[in-house]
Deep mutational scan, measured.
Amino acid sequence: MAEAPPRRLGLGPPPGDAPRAELVALTAVQSEQGEAGGGGSPRRLGLLGSPLPPGAPLPGPGSGSGSACGQRSSAAHKRYRRLQNWVYNVLERPRGWAFVYHVFIFLLVFSCLVLSVLSTIQEHQELANECLLILEFVMIVVFGLEYIVRVWSAGCCCRYRGWQGRFRFARKPFCVIDFIVFVASVAVIAAGTQGNIFATSALRSMRFLQILRMVRMDRRGGTWKLLGSVVYAHSKELITAWYIGFLVLIFASFLVYLAEKDANSDFSSYADSLWWGTITLTTIGYGDKTPHTWLGRVLAAGFALLGISFFALPAGILGSGFALKVQEQHRQKHFEKRRMPAANLIQAAWRLYSTDMSRAYLTATWYYYDSILPSFRELALLFEHVQRARNGGLRPLEVRRAPVPDGAPSRYPPVATCHRPGSTSFCPGESSRMGIKDRIRMGSSQRRTGPSKQHLAPPTMPTSPSSEQVGEATSPTKVQKSWSFNDRTRFRASLRLKPRTSAEDAPSEEVA
């Protein structure tokens, strides 16, 4: 009796068929016929556990003709996506030579605008209408194809895939403007070719909807975003200037109206006075309405000098805001240009540092100066060695804690006790272990408590650290204090090793 083939788990290929790579489910599931010992083939499952149809090819690079078809379809799909992405970037994010197409579109729109203006002049109306009709045909074809291509290429973005995504893309403001202008152009052409009475009025009214094509030149909205950011950044200043200017306008108009309503027919109503105030304070000055009385002229002159300053403030605020924003954008561009080279330089330096163990090129690091100058660790070890030599091999803490019996001779020589300023008595072995921070803190506390006492003391002649007598400086308080830590004499004296002298005989010792 033939044995059933062993159940295979995992992703390994079956024996005897090495080139074939078959994806098997996580659990080997066989058909009921196979479990019962029949000759049925096992049921194939996909990666998600769903059964595959009987005629479906197995996924994998070596699955025969199905694999070749899959490779061809995958390559075609990649080319399709690449083309779609390229078209989308050309239309929505132009760079380099892609601006040539947008310059061509701008020339078409500008020519249409010029011809629309010439069509309103009686001398050039006939020729402009003929040229404009031909140009409209060209623009309908160009913009119609462009609109379709834009909607198709938007599928390269995830949020615009599918018919719902394309509809979302078509609802964008600039796409809506394109659609309105396209419909208006078709209506103008249809009305112009019919030759009816309505054609002339339709051409004159709907052609100027094509002015909206100038708005579509900035599809990404960079200028509007820049203007919005400047207004938002200086909103408080703008609101303040406009508010005060509006108050000056209504008060000036009302007072001039009261002064001129009886003697001047131009100011017969408050609305006429508001019109005069707006034209005057905005420095336009049509001259259609002028005050005639001396009181009205004085009020107009005073409020004009006051109001023009507030009406001119928004222009200066926006101008300075634009300058600052442009400078910030230039700085951001320079930062973006330098970020990648800086990151590459840091990575290269780290690779060199991690692979080169000698690091002989590091001549400006802490390790280099640590090898030249005595390190703080060596100074600490030197302090501890000196203290243990004086205390008979014991550390200062051990000397303080060691009990001394009554009447027993002390094995240590008597030492002079010292007192730290602002604290109780402490171990004499710690007097010379006072660090730089303690010395600086002690000097600052003395300056806070009594700076007036220092200038009363007789001035001391500054001497070099080499000429100081070591026996005289029994305490860190003898170090000359200065008002600034930048004094080199104080810094050098604080680094010197001060020996400890006994109370009975204080021989001067120098520590090399």
Rank of each mutant, 00 (worst) to 15 (best):
M1T: 12
A2T: 08
E3G: 02
P5H: 14
R7S: 01
R8S: 03
G12D: 09
P14R: 03
P14A: 07
P15S: 02
G16A: 03
D17Y: 08
R20G: 10
V24A: 07
A28D: 07
V29M: 04
Q30K: 01
Q30L: 14
Q30E: 02
Q33H: 12
G37D: 10
G38W: 08
G40S: 07
G40V: 10
G40C: 06
R43H: 11
R43C: 07
R44S: 09
L45P: 03
G46D: 01
P54L: 08
G55A: 02
S63A: 15
G64S: 14
G66A: 03
A68T: 15
Q71H: 07
A75V: 13
A75D: 08
A76V: 06
H77Q: 15
R79H: 12
Y80N: 10
R81H: 11
R82P: 05
R82L: 05
L83P: 02
W86S: 07
W86G: 04
Y88F: 03
Y88N: 02
A98D: 06
A98V: 10
F99V: 01
L107M: 07
F110I: 06
S111G: 12
C112R: 04
I121S: 05
Q122P: 11
E123A: 07
H124R: 04
H124Q: 06
C131Y: 06
I134T: 08
E136D: 00
V138L: 13
V138G: 02
M139V: 02
I140F: 08
I140M: 03
V141G: 11
V142A: 14
F143C: 01
F143I: 14
L145W: 02
Y147D: 06
V149A: 08
R150W: 00
C157S: 08
C158W: 09
W163L: 06
R168C: 11
R168H: 09
A170T: 09
K172T: 01
K172Q: 00
K172M: 07
P173T: 00
F174L: 07
C175S: 07
V181L: 15
F182L: 10
F182V: 12
A187P: 04
V188F: 00
A191V: 15
A191P: 01
G195R: 01
F198V: 01
S201F: 00
R204P: 14
S205T: 08
M206I: 00
Q210K: 00
R213C: 00
R216S: 15
D218E: 00
R219H: 00
G221A: 06
T223A: 00
T223S: 00
K225N: 00
G228S: 07
G228A: 05
Y232N: 00
S235N: 07
S235R: 15
I239V: 06
A241T: 00
A241D: 13
Y243H: 00
I244L: 06
F251S: 14
F251C: 02
S253C: 05
L258V: 03
A263D: 13
S265Y: 06
D266E: 04
L281F: 09
I284V: 06
H292D: 09
W294C: 00
W294R: 01
L295P: 00
V298A: 08
I308T: 03
S309A: 05
F310S: 00
G319C: 15
V326I: 00
H330D: 11
I346V: 04
